[in-house]
């Protein structure tokens, strides 16, 4: 594979040369993190698909940073280059939206479905956004958001003094 970049920093430079509004941050080892604006995600993922011929879509998940801020993390692993690529996308809003990339990497289809039901991130042009793991009655409740309050009554039974609980910002309890 002569056209594949050897190291993570080379690939990072190649991507930044093409799309200058992307920031990169080297991690330890042959790993790199790219901070990608949401509207560029399809361009970057298809560029990775072109440049790294054996990219393995390892993971895609969301993080709730509270106050309607979300992060999406895409992780790709290349065996031939022993390289890990981590894309970070900042999203904002009550119902954040991003383009789906599951036609480029089919393996991310279910990851996107899971992120949709758990965090309420809408993936545009996703073929099939049914519930993956949750039962029907939890549709639209987005249980992995921090505002979803779970039942912690078991902890009161231990007889310990309780530390102060997490901030509850008007979520529905289960």
């Amino acid at each position: 594979m002569s056209d594949t970049p050897g190291s993570a920093s080379t690939l990072g430079r190649a991507i930044i040369n093409k799309y200058p509004d992307i920031e990169s941050k080297p991690l330890d080892g042959n790993k790199i993190e790219l901070i990608v604006p949401p509207e560029k995600i399809r361009d970057i993922v298809s560029l990775i698909d072109e440049q790294v011929s054996d990219a393995l879509p390892e993971s895609l998940f969301g993080i709730d940073l509270t106050e309607n801020k979300y992060e999406l993390i895409y992780i790709f692993w290349s065996h031939a280059n022993k390289m890990l690529l981590q894309l970070r996308v900042h999203l904002e809003g009550e119902k954040p939206e991003i383009e789906s990339v599951c036609d480029i990497f089919p393996g991310l289809e279910w990851h996107e479905r899971e992120t949709h039901e758990m965090f309420g991130v809408n993936f545009k042009n996703h073929p099939d956004l049914r519930l993956l793991l949750l039962p029907d009655e939890l549709e639209g409740k987005f249980p992995m958001r921090k505002s979803f309050v779970t039942d912690r009554s078991r902890m009161d039974e231990t007889g310990l003094a309780q530390p102060k609980s997490r901030p509850e910002s008007g979520g529905e309890s289960s």
Binding site: G29, D54, A55, P57, H79, L84, F105, G107, L108
Partner: peptide
């Protein structure tokens, strides 16, 4: 298999020695 995200023995059976014990 790579596109679907398969790993471990399922991809080593195709002849690709992708193994985190060696790679990372």
């Amino acid at each position: 298999a790579l596109k679907w995200g398969l790993s471990g023995p399922n991809i080593k059976a195709c002849g690709i020695p992708m193994d985190l014990r060696k790679d990372d």
